[in-house]
Structures are given as C-alpha cells and as structure tokens.
C-alpha cells in the first residue's frame, strides 16, 4: 500500500541499493529546490508586509526589513475592517463551496453516469461558464442582479461565484466518475437502490478526493475575487476582505507595506483551509484505496 516502502524493498532485494540511494538524493535535491522557488512568494510577502515604500521600491527587494513595522498590521486591521469583512468572506465562500459541491456533483452524476441524449451537450454548455470573460459579463450580470433585487446582498456574490465555480467542479467530478467502475452502479441497482441512492450512497462517498480538490479551487477563486465584490456590493455590512484590502490603495499614494500586511491577513485563512483540505485529499484517497 505504501509506495515508498514496497518499492524500495523490492529494489533492495535485487541489490541495487547504492544506485537507488544516489538517485533518491538527486531527486530530493531537485524537489527541495523547486519547493524553495514555490514557497518564496509567501516568504517575500511576509517580509514585504513589514516594509515601507522606500524599502519596497528601493534597493531592498528581497532582504529583511530594516525596521519591523508592526504598525503596518495595526493600520491594515483598522482600515480593512478585518473582523467584519473576514466574517463576510467566510459566509460568502462557505455558501459558495456548499452550493458548488452540491450542484456540481449532482449535475456531474447525471452527465457522467446516466444515459441521456443531451448529456454531452449539457456538459459542453456548462463548460461555457469558464469561457465568459468576467469583465464583459460585469454589466449584464449587474443588470440581472438588479432585476432579481439581489444587489447589496450576499447572494449577489454567492450566485455568480457558484455559477463560475461550477464548470471547473463539474469537469473534475465527471472525470473522476469515469474512473469509478460502472459495475458499482449495477450492483447497487440489483440490491434495490434507486437512482438517488446510487448518487448519494455509492458515488458521492467515492468522490471524496475530488470533493476536497473542488473545495480548494472554489475556495481560492471566491476568497480572492475582487471585481464582482466591488461592483455588486456598496454597503459596508456585505463587503468582503479583498475589497477591504483594496480600499487601502490610495488614488495617488499607496502604502504598499500596509497592503502587504492586509494580504498576509487574508492569506492565512487560505493556507489553513488548504492544509486542512489537502490533508483530506490524501486521507480520502488512502481510505478509498483500502476499501476498493
């Protein structure tokens, strides 16, 4: 089950221990170097959040800040209304993830496992959501939201975020469903499950790794979204965190260190959620593998 152990055991038996070790070291160095490149933006952001404009735009690009300006954080928390906006972002993002997973898994089930004529057409049409350039959709969507009386409510964000999250989610779910053997549905049907039960009891649990993956992607896109959040919401009680952070960008002078501090605050939840869900991806895969 554990790939590393069984593989190295296998190779040990053949007496190629030495070669494998060097290969592994080279591989580890390679992976670590790349890890360094990938983690760099996070480190850079944290350093950046303690600097002032002089340092950010001056010579000190990568180094430690000369003075650790905690005041950037104070200022960001105050200006960005962190607590209120954080709460709003959590509500919007959580609702979006919930709807995306529910709707996308249902639609993907119908598309990926059921037999009907328009199945593939529906799939392509759903993918259409990915193709709309959001800046052009801004005005039409604004008019739609206005007519539905949803401007300045959380729904003005949840509905578009869900709609724009669905195509990616449906694609991922459909592709995963293809890897689940069809015999499973048949067996369930023979046991007397109806179609809803097949979806709910058989397929949905097997989708768990995909659900975690979809949740991560949906989280990232709705957590960071700015364009809709700025245009559809103009009342403080409903604003989200990215809007709060952007409100620190002055028209003529911007204190970038404070923005950096705001971005660190906004990024922390993302990292936490990612760590949690990413663990879940791993766990559900292993759980699934043992069962299957």
């Amino acid at each position: 089950m554990d790939g590393v152990k069984s593989r190295s055991n296998n190779i040990n038996r053949r007496g190629k221990k030495h070669r494998v070790r060097i290969g592994n070291i080279v591989l580890m160095i390679f992976l670590s170097l790349y890890a360094l490149i990938q983690i760099y933006p996070l480190v850079w952001l944290i350093l950046f959040s303690f600097k002032n404009n002089t340092e950010i735009f001056g010579g000190n690009v990568a180094g430690l800040p000369k003075v650790w300006r905690w005041s950037n954080y104070e200022s960001a928390i105050r200006q960005a209304n962190v607590l209120l906006y954080l709460r709003n972002s959590v509500i919007v993002t959580a609702a979006t993830i919930f709807f995306v997973i529910m709707l996308a898994s249902m639609a993907a089930f119908a598309i990926g496992r059921m037999k009907w004529k328009l199945s593939n057409t529906t799939y392509i049409l759903i993918a259409l959501g990915m193709m709309v350039p959001i800046h052009a959709a801004l005005l039409p969507l604004f008019i739609v939201m206005k007519n539905l009386n949803l401007l300045n409510t959380f729904w003005a964000l949840i509905i578009p975020y869900t709609a724009f999250g669905l195509p990616v989610a449906v694609s991922i779910f459909v592709s995963f469903m293809k890897s689940i053997p069809r015999e499973l549905d048949e067996a369930a049907a023979i046991e007397g499950c109806n179609i809803y039960q097949i979806y709910y009891k058989v397929i949905l649990p097997l989708l768990r790794p995909a659900i975690a993956t979809v949740a991560i992607f949906t989280f990232i896109s709705s957590w960071n979204e700015l364009m809709f959040a700025i245009t559809f919401i103009n009342k403080k009680p409903f604003k989200t965190l990215p809007v709060g952070i952007m409100s620190m960008v002055g028209t003529y002078v911007t204190k970038w260190g404070e923005i950096g501090a705001g971005l660190v605050i906004a990024t922390i939840p993302t990292i936490i959620v990612y760590l949690l869900l990413s663990d879940q991806v791993q766990k559900s895969i292993i759980a699934g593998a043992i069962k299957g």
């Binding site: 005005l139 604004f142 008019i143 409100s247």
Partner: peptide, 25 residues
C-alpha cells in the same frame, strides 16, 4: 447621507457599470 468609497481604477469600472445599468447612487 451614506458614503461608499472604492479606489481609483475600480471606482471607474464600478461607476461606469452602475450608471450604464441605471443604478447609480
């Protein structure tokens, strides 16, 4: 009076969209 501020570039996009939709402040 209730105010709402949004910074430069985004403000332009928002005000143009809202006025085009007939939903300005």
């Amino acid at each position: 009076v209730e105010e709402d501020g949004v910074t430069g570039e985004q403000y332009k996009t928002r005000i143009k969209t809202a006025l085009a939709a007939g939903e300005g402040p």
